[in-house]
Design a protein around this nucleic acid. Sequence first.
DNA 1: GTCCTTGATTTGACTCGATCAAGAAAACCG
DNA 2: CGGTTTTCTTGATCGAGTCAAATCAAGGAC
Lengths: 157, 157
Amino acid sequence: MEATWQEQLRAVGLRVTRPRLSVLQVLAERPHADVDTIVTAAREVHPTLSPQAVYGVLQALVTGGLARRIEPAGAPALFELRVGDNHHHLVCRSCGAVADVDCTVGAAPCLTPSDTAGFVVDEAEVVFWGLCRDCRVGKPSETTKVPEHHDRGGVHE
Amino acid sequence: MEATWQEQLRAVGLRVTRPRLSVLQVLAERPHADVDTIVTAAREVHPTLSPQAVYGVLQALVTGGLARRIEPAGAPALFELRVGDNHHHLVCRSCGAVADVDCTVGAAPCLTPSDTAGFVVDEAEVVFWGLCRDCRVGKPSETTKVPEHHDRGGVHE
DNA sequence: GTCCTTGATTTGACTCGATCAAGAAAACCG
DNA sequence: CGGTTTTCTTGATCGAGTCAAATCAAGGAC
């Protein structure tokens, strides 16, 4: 599997290094990992890996288009390898869990704003907020970040 | 205009204080202000206002449903008074300018994910990324945060 | 109008995510 | 197998945001 990583790294002009392969492997196993998770996991195969190295690797991967950075409001940045397909995310308000969601609508009416106010839009980002199954059944996993929730509007109409 | 602020504060069980009125007035003038902007602007009418007070005021307003917090990726949090209508935002990659965009689509197909992966969704958040008019015409306002831009997918299909 | 209780603000320290910079190490080319 | 360039390590630094104790003000009671 790492052979593919090597090719992909070279394809975007990046050198093939152990930290990069380690980070790529972690991201392949954990689709939405934050930096701390990546460092911890990657150290299983590369114990001397530093957090700053991971930041550097991730920035290189994102710049090269091999990874994508997502930043749910109020949470540290997460990284994923799924790039190219413009999929969206479900985020749990309680535990912060993230799940991918493919947009099943080809032409997305709501994603081409009628009044762009002079902006040239090149990307539309959608985040669905809610509660994951585990948190919903009364098991607020580990971190209960949003104990009380103020609803204001519901799901877009 | 402050009479309305007073009513609104009382309506959600909050005391009417100078910091709160100041912050509300600033938000009414600047629809998408960050904390620093609010502090600076509010000090024109309340010079001793502390940043922490603004944080407290904003949290109270958000909790009470009078304000909404938006956090564009990579930028400090912004606050706005438009609540209740689930409108979306255009964000400039270069200068960070934010503009409101009303969703013209009543039923939003793309905003009800087909596979919710066990999540109970209560809000859909949409952010349109692009360049504002000023930054597009070669005047990258002040902070050029994203000099080179890697496009990866365009506007959702 | 004044007092009192509760809630809000001030002040200061502190946490956490992320970035920057200089030197050491490694990857790739020939 | 060197040489050059990129990348990683190490350590300091920054900024947004939070926490906690003490002070202060708002608003109802008297």
